[in-house]
């Protein structure tokens, strides 16, 4: 993997990490923190239990883009 794509990859990771932190925290959660229900289930529960697998799916998709690192001390580690 070239350094450039590694750097880009790392930046995308970082963006998703912060996006995840923001979306699973206050005040973002307040959007769904309401008494309303969907199919009898509170909105917040729905949001958390759908948002969570989505974030896992994002991680999964991204792990597919990583190639195995065969070196003992890869330059990508930093």
């Amino acid at each position: 993997m070239s350094n450039e794509s590694t750097t880009q990859q790392r930046q995308i990771w970082l963006i998703f990490f912060f996006l995840g932190v923001v979306m699973l925290n206050f005040p973002f959660l307040q959007i769904f923190n309401r008494v309303e229900t969907f199919l009898g289930i509170p909105l917040l529960v729905i949001y958390l239990f759908f948002g969570w697998p989505i974030s896992i799916a994002v991680v999964y998709i991204f792990t597919r883009t990583i190639e195995d690192d065969d070196s003992d001390h890869s330059s990508e580690v930093d």
């Binding site: 995840g20 990583i66 890869s74 930093d78």
Partner: peptide, 24 residues
């Protein structure tokens, strides 16, 4: 459980670095 899910984003860089150092 949400915390660990989030920190997993960093593992390829953070955890891998820790593992490589530890092995060395």
């Amino acid at each position: 459980y949400l915390g660990p899910t989030l920190i997993c984003f960093s593992w390829w860089f953070l955890l891998r670095k820790i593992i490589i150092i530890s092995k060395q």
